[in-house]
Amino acid sequence: MNSREKGKRGERELAGELRRHGYDARRGQQYCGVNGDADVVGLPGLHIECKRVERLDLYAAMSQAEHDAPDGMLPVVMHRKNNCQWLVTMRLDDYMEIYREWEAGKH
């Protein structure tokens, strides 16, 4: 399978997982194909770079997400390899902002 097809399959798989969690997610370039679109859309406020590979340069993937993310969107990389669960990588400052909001909502 060529890498483009594997990428599309990974994006569909991730969108399905996000739908399972209750979000109306889909491949970002499914309809318009504009460069700079998020790989998967449907989580408000997040610009998602999807990687479904065995070996991943996380810093390069995050750099791509940061470069492509519009102002006001948090860049994240959602990734997994075979026989493993999906993981999310994001900048520490962005994570801490989300965590503070979550923590404040608990009190």
Rank of each mutant, 00 (worst) to 15 (best):
N2P: 07
R100S: 12
N82F: 14
N2I: 04
P70W: 04
M96V: 15
Y59T: 09
A38I: 03
K81D: 03
E66N: 03
E17W: 12
A38D: 04
M1E: 09
S63C: 11
L14Y: 11
N82S: 13
A65H: 01
H21I: 09
E101Q: 15
Y99R: 15
V41Y: 01
V53P: 06
E13F: 05
R9C: 06
H79T: 06
G7V: 08
E11N: 07
R52I: 04
N2G: 09
R27K: 02
D37C: 09
A61S: 08
D94A: 05
K106M: 13
D39R: 02
L18V: 07
H47C: 10
L18F: 02
G33V: 00
A61N: 01
H67Q: 14
I98F: 13
H67K: 15
L14R: 11
G22S: 05
G22V: 04
E66D: 05
G33Q: 03
E101W: 15
C84R: 13
V76G: 01
R91T: 04
K51V: 00
L58M: 14
A104R: 14
A65F: 03
S3W: 09
I48Q: 00
D24V: 05
C84L: 10
K6I: 14
A69Q: 05
V53W: 13
V77E: 03
C84A: 12
G22C: 05
G28D: 00
E97H: 14
L18P: 01
R27E: 02
H47G: 06
W102G: 09
N35C: 10
I48C: 02
E11L: 05
H67N: 12
Y31F: 04
R80Y: 08
R100N: 13
G33R: 00
L18Q: 02
M1S: 11
V40E: 06
L43E: 11
M62F: 03
G105P: 00
Y95V: 01
G22L: 06
N2R: 09
V40F: 01
M78A: 07
E97C: 09
C84F: 15
S3D: 15
V76Y: 00
R52F: 13
V41A: 06
C84W: 15
G28I: 01
L92E: 08
K51Q: 04
M90N: 02
G45E: 05
R52L: 07
D57F: 07
G7A: 11
Q64N: 03
R100Q: 14
E5S: 12
L87S: 10
K51A: 02
R55M: 10
Y31R: 00
L58H: 07
G16S: 07
P75S: 00
E5I: 11
A60V: 05
D57Y: 10
A61W: 02
E17Y: 10
V34K: 02
M62V: 06
L74R: 13
H79G: 04
G28Y: 00
V53L: 14
R9L: 12
R4Y: 15
L92R: 11
A65N: 01
D94M: 03
R12V: 10
G10V: 05
G105S: 06
T89H: 10
